[in-house]
Design a protein around this nucleic acid. Sequence first.
DNA 1: GAAATAGTGTCTATCAGACATTATGGC
DNA 2: GCCATAATGTCTGATAGACACTATTTC
Lengths: 255, 255
Amino acid sequence: MLILIMSIPTARSGNSRLPPTTIPRYPCPFFTVNLVVFAVRDEQLQILLVKRDAAPYQARWALPGGVLDLQHDDSIDSCAHRTLASLIETVDTYTPYLEQLKTYGSRDCDPRGWAATTVYFVLMAIDWLPLDDNEQRGHWVAVRGQGVNVELAFGHAKIVADAVERLRSKLEYTHIAVHLLPEEFTLPELQRIYEIILQQPLDKSSFRRRVAQADMLEEMSGKLRDGSGRPAQLYRFRDYHRRTFFPRSISRYAR
Amino acid sequence: MLILIMSIPTARSGNSRLPPTTIPRYPCPFFTVNLVVFAVRDEQLQILLVKRDAAPYQARWALPGGVLDLQHDDSIDSCAHRTLASLIETVDTYTPYLEQLKTYGSRDCDPRGWAATTVYFVLMAIDWLPLDDNEQRGHWVAVRGQGVNVELAFGHAKIVADAVERLRSKLEYTHIAVHLLPEEFTLPELQRIYEIILQQPLDKSSFRRRVAQADMLEEMSGKLRDGSGRPAQLYRFRDYHRRTFFPRSISRYAR
DNA sequence: GAAATAGTGTCTATCAGACATTATGGC
DNA sequence: GCCATAATGTCTGATAGACACTATTTC
């Protein structure tokens, strides 16, 4: 049997709005946003890493991130968008898919002290990616199993593992893979994305039936030609805001 | 085409660990944890609310929460557990199910300034609940649709809606409903939990088949007797740490 | 025509929903 | 025996997987 104890901590007393730069009376963690940016490149699921240029973990690979700026960020979401914008520059109106993953915070993960980070995962369409990465500080790295082959700073390896698991899990019953493709794409291309991320071949007929029943794509009139073979029909995603849920997970039995 | 810009914000320079009480050099948000505590009581899905005793939103209902304590909390998770422990007192080793939902943070949600809160949702077994709630400051409130019928402080109505949606969604393809029941329970009881939360009747035969195939329960030897009718077999959940995923969502078609 | 890839048709095993039937307790 | 509820059995429609087959392009 339990007893309710109602001594809820009641935050700060007083009512005045603090100017954004005022340091609050309560000690609070160092707060950042980190991004797990996914793309499918070269038939691989890859993520974008940056090399740290200062201690701690200097010269170690890490997830790209940014410090929450109380002056300019209206919300954690907008901090995430700003961080993403500082990482990639779009020439037109393309916005990658962005979804909050989880918040990690502890005394230990940063040697400088108590730190918290809200992590978002980002899906980037393949045609928006820079073709070469001869930059010194940013790099696309292939995902192998639940992580990457390089050592990561802080607790970022665990974060990557969580993000990969979430991506695979969501692929099982939603449409999010379309965000990894350009606006117009073919069904074999979409199927290939699923196969690469789920790491298993899928039956063509079943896959097309599944997509057709979800009624999430609309046919274009043009055609795409491939290097060889019959050209494939182009499709476009119907509504990027609607959520498609498949009633059954894809190939859950095949595992 | 995009260009990578690699000017990643590189956090604080310097390497020394700050004592926990030191105010960091960067302004940071007021950081709290909030809980959405679910239980099924009186054939209803209910959540636990507290009445605020100070401004802002004095005397308004709100989600129970606590301020992150850098001295005593090792992580956000442990802050959540501490907050829960300050709310309910267990006489033995029962620990409710606790899962991080999402982090909400913005300049607007708290009139005192930039605030962030990591929200957890909690599932409590029905036999651990206090039977009466004649406390002045805590109250169980029935969930109606996506929320509750009382007005909530801050942005808590949106948080409750998200939590309810997550709970319903997880019920569709996982076993988490068992955390709302005592250690030993009958299949009709489990089915009733699903029906109450999903707000739709389920077929008895289909439900039992589904549970049996998931192989998540083990039969006890004793029996439970009800007020009337044939006594029902008691079961116990096999492994609280293993995740059960149903290959199909429950009754997705019936909707 | 051969090769390659896109797209369709068909069969079957499986499973969910519906509903009937049997089982087991209290009164 | 009657009532109430638990538990099981059976039928059917829907669908995913498997795989064969057709279609359309390049060479």
